[in-house]
Design a protein around this nucleic acid. Structure first.
Length: 586
RNA sequence: GGGGCCGUGGUGUAGCCGGUUUAGCACACCUGCCUGUCACGCAGGAGAUCGCGAGUUCGAAUCUCGUCGGUCCCGCCA
């Protein structure tokens, strides 16, 4: 790089106090305004924009060169910081009181015609944005998000390091483990026919680090899961993973609360209120139909089965009937009801019944109601005249979960959140859940979670009633992370495996290294993993974690920029001892 | 695997419901003019077989079906 044009400072950091100084600036041409006898250029770097002035009377060579400049050319300039003439200040930008009168200009590189306008915040088709992600990343929105993410990462490192956690890296090439998500596999050349797996999380390694006496571990860890994508799910994502020894749940809560406090204070200058509220898994499902309730909104679910099973309205017969109150919306139109019904159906509801509480209640089953039933309904749902009640009926458990999803739609449609950030701990998770499709018991969290002491006696007899030392952190209805106190006793770990249908031989084959480690003096330990992408996305006000990832993939896990995944050479496959089964591909 | 929405010059969109237009507009691009703009302005120009395929029709960007891609959701995600 030409030393003469070595940058002395950034564009966006200059202000009125700098007037009179000579500077060298480097950056991209954000926009050129050519007045014929005078040219203005907005020069942009990651800090912002500053206005350059090219005046032929001041330096004609630079002026003539500036006539050629186009958007996104990369240039360097030498010049003097001037106060703008009276009346020509631009108060919309931070550097709007000053401008740079350019002495010399050099063009570092030119740009092709752009696939989209980098200097405008218009919504571009997401495929095109990803295809040209290097340009998309120049725009302020993503620059801000990437910077925010950087700041959060730095705060996490400092906070956890200051709290005695050591940052330890664990293998990316590891072994495939049963249960959990589908693995991304990596074929081994040396061991033909065998595969590594990319980690779904560093779970087993961090537990072994506890056995190793590391005592407190953390990692900003990339994790891989080959499952279908969502706005908040990418095939590779990042967890703030931590584990500590000789601790209990309360220790984890206060460490993580302190961490979140530091993140929000340090990156957004927002002071969170601690401690975060807690809610049991059971209460969350009862009141909100989900284990990650968005408590920014007051709306709740009400079980009105007992009352409405009695009336002669066929959809309610022998069904679980769950109601939700939409306060002061009793005046909804027929069209409004139809729209709600459509969205409820899209979320899995068989239908949507409604009741508008007027002087005379209106709705599809209002004629079956008497005064007593109506009063009971109003009491249970805490509703009054002018309110709208909506009902979903289905098999027990189903109606509640469906209404839980529909509640989010109701909130979006009718209400403003009460607060910007609503954190919530979900505690007392069950240790197991029953998978109907596969007709077997599964780990609700993961197979290494310990049961609550007081429920251990139920393990073999009523395993589904056993509660776990497991917890989730929820923010605005998003699961930010989950964790647990692990089984540090190999005998307990074996009991849990056995209930999961993993017999002893099987357990040793698949997790022997962990069981072995636990048998050489394992401290009580537990930890948590928090989704960094999700945290940053919420802080940035983004709906999708793609907006806080530099190079995300599309919903079918394709990268339009690199065109991954791709074919590979036949030779590469041969070295790995792999052949593609054409009939499976086509 | 399933459902919803979207696909029109390089980009963003109008037109599509109720079929017949020279497919309109803005930004970007090209040529020229312009000394205080900051979404600079003015004059002119080039650029689109309307994602792809089939069907209905005298006639399809517009209606139907299929397909590809994007996105949101359900399933899946210990």
């Amino acid at each position: 790089m030409n030393k003469e044009f070595k940058r002395t400072e950034y564009c966006g950091e200059l202000n009125i106090d700098d007037v009179g100084r000579q500077v060298v600036l480097n950056g991209w041409v954000n926009r050129r305004r050519d007045h014929g006898g005078l040219i203005f250029v907005d020069l942009r770097d990651r800090t912002g924009i500053v206005q350059l002035v090219f005046d032929p009377k001041h330096n004609n060579d630079s002026f003539e060169l500036a006539q050629q400049l186009k958007n996104e050319w990369v240039i360097g300039i030498k010049g003097k910081i001037n106060k703008r003439p009276e009346g020509s200040e631009n108060l919309k930008i931070p550097t709007g009181e000053i401008e740079i009168l350019v002495d010399k200009l050099t063009v570092f590189s030119r740009s092709n015609i752009l696939p989209f306008n980098v200097n405008e915040e218009e919504d571009v088709d997401e495929y095109t944005r990803l295809r040209y992600r290097f340009l998309d990343l120049r725009r302020p929105r993503l620059q801000k998000n990437i910077e925010l993410r950087h700041r959060v990462s730095q705060i996490v490192r400092k906070y956890l390091s200051d709290s005695g956690f050591w940052e330890v890296e664990t293998p990316m090439l590891t072994r495939s483990t049963p249960e959990g998500a589908r693995d991304y596999l990596v074929p081994s050349r040396v061991h033909k026919g065998k595969f590594y797996a990319l980690p779904q999380s560093p779970q087993l390694f961090k537990q072994m680090l506890m056995v190793s006496g590391i005592d407190r571990y953390f990692q900003i860890a990339r994790c891989f899961r080959d499952e279908d994508l969502r706005a908040d799910r990418q095939p590779e994502f990042t967890q703030i993973d931590l584990e500590a020894s000789f601790i209990d749940e309360e220790d984890i809560f206060s460490i993580v609360e302190g961490l979140m406090y530091s993140i929000f204070k340090g990156a957004l200058d927002i002071e969170l209120t601690l401690p975060f509220p807690r809610m049991s898994y059971r209460e969350a499902y009862t009141r909100f139909g989900t284990d990650r309730p968005d408590i920014r909104y007051d709306t709740e679910l009400y079980d009105v089965s007992d009352v409405l099973n009695k009336i002669s309205f066929p959809p309610f017969q022998d069904k679980e009937v769950i109601a939700i109150r939409v306060s002061s919306r009793g005046n909804i139109t027929r069209k409004g009801i139809d729209e709600l019904t459509d969205s409820a159906r899209a979320l899995g509801a068989k239908g949507l019944a409604w009741l508008s509480l007027q002087d005379e209640p209106r709705g599809p089953f209002s004629k079956f109601l008497n005064g007593h039933i109506l009063d009971r309904l109003k009491t249970i749902t805490n509703s009054d005249k002018g309110d709208l009640l909506l009902f979903i009926a289905d098999e027990p458990g189903i109606a509640r979960v469906t209404m839980g999803r529909f509640r989010l739609e109701i909130n979006r449609r009718f209400f403003q959140p009460n607060t910007q950030y609503a954190f919530l701990w979900i505690v007392d998770f069950p240790l197991f859940s029953f998978n109907k499709d596969e007709n077997r018991i599964e780990a609700e969290h993961h197979p290494f979670t310990s049961p609550k002491d007081e429920d251990i006696y139920l393990l073999e007899t009523e395993p589904l009633k056993v509660r776990a030392n497991a917890y989730d952190l929820v923010l605005n209805g998003v699961e930010l992370g989950s964790g647990s106190i692990r089984n540090s006793d190999p005998e307990m770990q074996k009991r849990v495996f056995s209930i999961l249908g993993i017999d002893e031989a099987d357990a040793y084959k698949k997790f022997g290294f962990l069981l072995e480690a636990l048998s050489y003096g394992a401290p009580p330990h537990g930890g948590m993993a928090l989704g960094l992408d999700r945290i940053v996305a919420i802080m940035a006000g983004e709906e999708s974690i793609r907006e806080v990832l530099a190079f995300p993939k599309t919903q079918n896990a394709f990268c339009p920029l690199t065109e991954a995944p791709s074919d590979v050479d036949e030779n590469q496959l041969k070295e790995l001892g792999i052949s593609i089964r054409k009939e499976e591909v086509l």
